[in-house]
């Protein structure tokens, strides 16, 4: 029974939502809108559980003085402060909440994003070592594309930019589309398997 009910809900809702996709009638659209509102409510309930987990995890860490526990104090304090500021002083454009968000949170996020350049350099070093035929091909293609797209590429050879463009537009695009077609079928198959109850890994596997 514990598995039959979720499977039945999944089957009914999956089939109904699939049918809804093909019906443009206002009743069908209204139904879709209602379901989307339910999802928002479910998300709100899930957020309560998630925040509970966050508080619990960091509280235990502080209590047991685990490694780097002071960071947990920063996490909990920041979360509480933002919640209180947002609840009592509002979240309008010129509010304290927005100022903290734009002047502390946004630069911190941008800093993390900026690190990507350094990670790319170290990853590129590893990837471009010509250890095998595939890696050598990768290195050659990357070199041609990089040099071809640079301004001085055309001084090396006037045909280099066009060749780099050709690599991007044909071999690269063909490979990408092949992957995308496979992904589309995989996604459809996964959806159908779950709706029809063939896939039960999300319920702990077969029974």
């Amino acid at each position: 029974m514990k598995r039959t009910i979720p499977l039945a809900i999944c089957l009914i809702m999956g089939v109904v939502m699939m049918i809804q996709f093909f019906i443009p009638h206002p009743i069908s659209l209204e139904f879709n809108s209602t379901i989307l509102n339910w999802i928002i409510v479910l998300f709100a309930f899930a957020l309560v559980l998630a925040i509970g987990n966050l508080i619990r995890h960091h509280s235990i860490k502080i209590r047991k003085r685990k490694h780097d526990w002071p960071y947990s104090i920063v996490t909990l304090t920041s979360m509480a402060a933002m919640a209180i500021i947002g609840l009592f002083w509002g979240i309008e454009a010129d509010s304290l909440f927005q100022r903290i968000y734009l002047n502390i949170f946004a630069p911190l996020s941008a800093t993390m994003f900026a690190l990507l350049a350094y990670y790319m350099a170290s990853a590129a070093y590893r990837a471009f070592r010509a250890r095998s035929l595939e890696a050598t091909l990768l290195l050659a293609a990357a070199f041609i594309v990089m040099v071809g797209f640079m301004p001085f590429g055309q001084y090396i050879s006037p045909r280099l930019p066009a060749f780099a463009e050709w690599i991007m537009r044909y071999p690269n695009m063909a490979a990408q589309r092949g992957i995308i077609i496979g992904v589309a079928f995989g996604a459809i198959a996964t959806a159908l398997k779950i709706i029809l109850g063939i896939e039960r890994s999300w319920l702990g596997g077969k029974e």
């Binding site: 990853a123 590893r126 990837a127 992957i179 496979g182 992904v183 995989g186």
Partner: peptide, 23 residues
């Protein structure tokens, strides 16, 4: 299944499931 991120994973990971292999 994110085509743009696959090269990064291929570079940094030991094994990568490409596209449909994920499903």
């Amino acid at each position: 299944d994110s085509v743009l991120q696959l090269p990064f994973f291929v570079t940094a990971c030991d094994y990568t499931l490409i596209g449909e292999e994920l499903y």
